[in-house]
Amino acid sequence: MIANFFQYEFLQNTFYTGLLIGLIAPLLGSFIVVRRLSLIADALSHVTLAGIAFGLMLEKKFALGFITPFYTGMGFSVVASVFVEQLRRVYKAYQELAIPIILSGGVGLSVIFISLADGFNTDLFNYLFGSVSAVSRGDLWSIVGITIIVLTVLLLFYKELFMLSFDEEHAVVSGIHAKRIHFLFILLTALVIAASIRIVGVLLVSALMTLPVAASIRLAKGFKQSIVLSIIFGEISVVAGLISGYYFEIPPGGTIVVTSIIILLLAIAAKRLGLNLGRRRANQ
């Protein structure tokens, strides 16, 4: 595989992209999980699918090569993120309602666009479950751009986002502009989802944002440590998932998620073992 990696550009694109999303998806996911917004990633990924289907339809029907499904997916995801925020404001007492509304809207639009584009094709299958061969050099550069944006914004607004995640009321009382920061955050989420879809696929993208975090919060002391651990788990999942996906010729989305689940189970077992050892020591 190493020889092939140096020989084929598509493999290089895939691995570099995989490493980047292994970094940014769990990083942003750390905030998503503690803010109890895990399902928002799912809702946005389904809208991204609608955008991708729209892009595929444009390609097929109008031969508009300059608007790729990657960009239409990203556009739909960003617009949906604005709607999520609006809906959460309209339904203050039922904020989780925003998720099924956006999710079903995304699936509904996807069905319409897929039908208009005369049904499924291999490219759409790649978008659903990820692919080791679908990342172009152009996609890679877009994802490099998204990674730089995500890292810069999170670095600059880390302390405000951390405060909002822990205690929104206290953040507002302290004079933090909660609405603006939250909007920025949900925009980043939309971008990261769009960036991750090429590798893990629409149906599994939220797993890469939540499973490494679910494992890390079992073991970490503090939020920063939890972020570092979740990135390590994310990278292990992506690399192991891509390699096994390549060898077994199956979509990497599946192998990445299965690796993440194995790590999660190990983390749960390690925590339990640690607790039991602690208790035994305390009893001695």
Partner: peptide, 12 residues
């Protein structure tokens, strides 16, 4: 269940 240390909470 929020993974925040005492130091991180006070830093807010």
């Amino acid at each position: 269940g929020f993974p925040a240390t005492v130091e991180e909470v006070v830093s807010m």
